[in-house]
Each structure stands twice: as C-alpha cells, then as structure tokens.
Nucleic acid binder design. Structure first.
Lengths: 140, 140
DNA sequence: CTACATCCTCTAGCGACTAGAGGTGCAAGA
DNA sequence: TCTTGCACCTCTAGTCGCTAGAGGATGTAG
C-alpha cells in the first residue's frame, strides 16, 4: 500500500512525468488518489499499467488499441480473440512498413551510389527526385 | 505558357488540393499568379516542383530537407555534396527503422503464435505486454 | 528558515497535413 | 438568361502523441 509520487512512477515505468499526466487526461490511466497537498499518489497497480502502456507503445500500438488491450486485461475470463486480432493487425502493419521501407532503401542506395560528387546538374539524387520515371520501384 | 488550375495541378502531380495550398502557405511552393477571379494559375515549372516534392515526401524526406534539396536544384552549378549528405542521412534513418521494425516483427510474431485462442488470462499477447521480462529483445 | 527540487494547472506548440464553414467563380444545360 | 452544380477562395480548428513553458504550490534536506 506504499504510495508513489509521479516522479518515482516515471522513473520506475520509463514513462515521462508529463506523459503520465497526459495519459490520465485522455482517460488511459485512472486518476490516482491525492496527497494532502494535492499531489498524485500512485500504487503498484498503476505502475504495472504504465509499464504495460509503455511496452505497447514501444511495439507501436496506437492509444486506442492499447485502450482495447487494457480493457481485455481487466477482464481475464474473456476470450482473447480480440487481443489476438489487435496484435495480428499490428503485425500486418509492421510487415507492410518493412516492405515499403526496404523498397525505399533500395531507391535511396541507388541515388547515393549514383552521385558522382560533382555538381548538382549531374547529381543523381536531384535527378531521380525530379523525374519519377527513373525510380527503381514505381509502386509508390 | 498554358495556365493550370489547382485541381488540375493536383491531378497531374498527385498532391491534393489543400496540400498544395498548405505548401504555398509554408513557403515550399511559390505563390502562383492569379486569374481575374482570384484563382491560382499554375505553370509547368510549378508542376515539376510539385512532383519533385511529392516524390521526396514518398521517400520520407522531411519538409525542411526538401526545402534544402529544392534550393540545390535551383542552383545547378553548386556542388551536390549537400544533396548527397541529405540522402545519406535519410538512408541511415531508413536502415535504422527497418532494423527496429524487424525486431518488433519478431516480437509480435511470438506474441501471436503463443496465443492459444483461449481466455485472456492465458493469452500470451496480454502477458508479454504486461511483463517486459518475456520480450525476445530487451533493447527497446 | 531557507534553498531547491519536485509537484500542480493551464495553454500553446510540434509536423504534416485534413476537415469543415461560409462564400465566390465559372462552364454547361434548359 | 437563368440556374445548377462543381471547383475554387479564405479562415479556423482538429488530428496524433506527446513536449515545452509559464506561474505558482508543496515537500525535503541542511
């Protein structure tokens, strides 16, 4: 039942102080009890929740997805199909993003390799940007 | 010398109408001449520039980087070292992003595979998020 | 008792747009 | 000629997930 200040909660969870207050403001984290001097007093459960949120954010889940995951976590007898669906959707996003970034990488490499370090009018970087037709990948 | 409306410019360049106006507002694109009825009248050079911008945005260059690249393009006798540096920096960013996304992908795959499609209290998705110690990669 | 760090609330800003309100211009059909 | 209806105009405000700063209160160590 030990109470924790917001600063300590920030240090322990890895979520910055203003971000914790922001999460409270948008209703992602319940408003904690307050000390006599009106300062937030957190408990272990809040810390667990903050850690959960931070981890999910690091995995790139959006706030709304985290909101859904937290609701699921609160009701452990529910089916985890929703959690699975959210994670799978995120996985698909990530895979898509990797594919498109890999294509970009190839294109940037060609640009950089083609640059003869001369003057701008012979620069492949500028040239490729100006004329899409020279792209390696036309998908974008 | 054929004048082009903003809608036509949007269709030809692939940049949306409000975005074109936005680019003008932030000084990325010069304000074009106007028709008698105060409507924007673009020329071919504006279209080329818009295409350049769109292409650079698709490659993930930030507005400020594009601003720099456009300045270089305007002065073709300059050394292209700056353009090269901008493209290389972007390449490094992209490579970094791919690495981190690949790590995320592995983690998400483990979460999704571990999900037995049962109840939430046995769900690996929720479990992993709650306890960082179970992560495949601790770097994040 | 006095520093000084930490806390509080509130507002505004970031990047790169996007959406909407409320009004004007223009081309084509009746 | 009139009217319909789309495209255009400006302006403000909203998006997402924070972050920064002002201006003031509280808590703690020396």
């Amino acid at each position: 039942m030990k109470k924790i200040t917001i600063g300590e909660a920030a240090r322990k969870s890895g979520v910055k102080v203003p971000t914790i207050r922001y999460y409270e403001g948008i209703g992602l984290l319940a408003a904690p009890s307050r000390s006599e001097g009106n300062q937030r007093a957190y408990e272990q459960t809040d810390l667990d929740r903050l850690t959960f949120i931070r981890h999910a954010r690091e995995l790139g889940f959006e706030i709304d997805a985290i909101r859904a995951l937290l609701t699921l976590q609160d009701d452990p007898h529910q089916s985890c199909a929703s959690a699975d669906a959210i994670a799978k959707a995120r996985l698909v996003e990530v895979e898509q993003r990797i594919r498109s970034l890999t294509a970009l990488k190839a294109e940037l490499e060609m640009m950089v390799e083609g640059c003869g370090h001369g003057r701008v009018d012979q620069c492949r970087v500028i040239e490729v940007l100006a004329d899409h037709g020279q792209c390696a990948h036309h998908g974008h």
